[in-house]
């Protein structure tokens, strides 16, 4: 269970404060994967980052005892001058015990399929290779919730397929909280939906209902 209490997040702009989230309170039940749905700039990614503790709200708090991942495939924590293996080792030191270190590294090495690039500095990687490493790294650790911000859109067809299979496998024990521009992808991976709409944030037990509500809202707005 993840409880959001009075979350408010705003940014300073030259034209005054811009509120991304305004006093959001809701409870996300256990054992459901959730898609965050909303137009560009609605605050989906911000909410995702706040749930994961990567960003802090101006007000309010997130209450949970669950283990939550960093955004899957995140590359901002990578150090370009270090090799893929060294970067993986660094994160493994943060999240795993010493005894597990070798197995975590082996998992990422096998999953990312980077060949000898695994032992080369990350700055020599293509963006595809980088995201393969990032995705494999996230999947090496067991979390209750994996946060996903537009990740399955990267990599070639074979890698995409492999990633999707791994996500489905992980879903037996863990949940996903996902931001994606592809509504079909959200439908495929998520049970419930969180609509970050023009009139506040609403939770839907059924992801289909959230998508319908989103489409209605956008239709009404453009009409």
């Amino acid at each position: 269970m993840i409880q959001l209490k009075n979350l408010t997040k705003s940014y300073k702009t030259p034209k005054g404060r811009h509120f991304v989230l305004h006093d959001v309170s809701l409870t996300i039940p256990s054992d459901v994967s959730i898609g965050l749905i909303g137009r560009n700039g609605a605050g989906k990614s911000t909410l995702l980052r706040i749930i994961g503790g990567m960003d802090r709200p101006d007000n309010g708090r997130v209450i949970t005892r669950q283990r939550i991942s960093w955004p899957v495939g995140l590359a901002s924590g990578f150090q370009g001058s270090m090799t893929g293996r060294e970067n993986v080792k660094f994160v493994a030191r943060l999240y795993a015990s010493k005894a597990q270190l070798a197995s975590k590294i082996a998992f990422v090495q096998e999953f990312a399929e980077l060949g000898h690039y695994f032992d080369m500095p990350i700055k020599t990687y293509s963006s595809g290779m980088r995201s393969r490493l990032g995705f494999g790294l996230s999947m090496a650790f067991d979390f209750d919730y994996y946060l996903v911000d537009e990740v399955t859109a990267v990599g070639d067809a074979a890698f995409k397929q492999k990633s999707a299979a791994l996500i489905q496998q992980k879903r037996q024990a863990s949940q996903f909280i996902m931001v994606s521009h592809s509504l079909s992808e959200i439908k495929r991976f998520c049970d419930a939906g969180l609509l970050i709409g023009r009139n506040g944030v609403r939770y839907f037990d059924q992801v289909d209902h959230a998508i319908e509500a989103y489409q209605e809202e956008e239709h009404a707005h453009t009409a």
Partner: peptide
């Protein structure tokens, strides 16, 4: 170190 703060223990 901003990039590292995405990893919660840091």
């Amino acid at each position: 170190n901003r990039g590292l703060f995405s990893y919660r223990p840091v």
